[in-house]
Design a protein around this nucleic acid. Structure first.
Lengths: 107, 107
DNA sequence: ACGTGATATATCCTCGAGAATATATCGCAT
DNA sequence: ATGCGATATATTCTCGAGGATATATCACGT
């Protein structure tokens, strides 16, 4: 499931996982590391997300006591929650057809 | 919405549109033309689909009275119908969250 | 003032997906 | 036999997304 914004992908599975991890860890670098992706890649995903929404989903600070960090904004937490709800609802609403379709698939 | 089969995409928006057009036109070439894609591309999509399912979704004949053509198999029609139902159910099941999420998006 | 560890951003480079091209094949009609 | 119009498949080529690398920036401790 993907949420599009023009040609860009505003939200997809990868971006959502990243959001969740940033919420947990409070760090872009740490979140990227846990997903096995480079900091660069994570940062570009975040840049895209922030550009797609009216308000940023992630806000980061440089320097400071903890040498910087990142956190979800209220909009970010809202978008994450909505996406997860939508996904759960989809799985639920397609269960019977999905079962039938899987039986037609090879693996 | 995408249906995966290992690493391959068994069904996605493009493939489903192609299936529908083949059902209507009875020809891979004609269907590809209407979607503005090359015959090669359409043929590769079909090859992938047929490989992902236990039985082919599209069967084609070469030569003959009408100089060949293509048609959906029973499995093909079933898969197409199931996908369309799943999509409709998803849209329905996520309407409220989707509306809320859209209000957070820029466009 | 300087080191530190995080974010921010530009620049180069690689690799592979997909387009383009070319060719083979089929089965019937004439 | 030969032509036709469709499918079938290999081969070559191109281009751009994404990774790798390098560097700048920040703000606080010490």
């Amino acid at each position: 499931m993907r949420v599009l914004c023009g040609e860009e992908i505003a939200l997809g599975p990868g971006k959502v996982d990243l959001l969740a991890l940033i919420g947990e860890t409070g760090s872009i670098r740490e979140a990227a590391g846990r997903m096995g992706m480079s900091y660069m890649r994570a940062w570009k995903l975040i840049k895209t997300m922030n550009a797609c929404f009216r308000k940023p989903l992630v806000e980061a600070v440089r320097g400071g006591r903890a040498h910087g960090g990142a956190a979800l904004t209220a909009t970010g937490r809202m978008a994450l929650a909505l996406y997860e709800q939508m996904e759960a609802n989809c799985v639920d609403a397609t269960r019977s057809q999905w079962k039938e379709l899987r039986s037609l698939l090879r693996d």
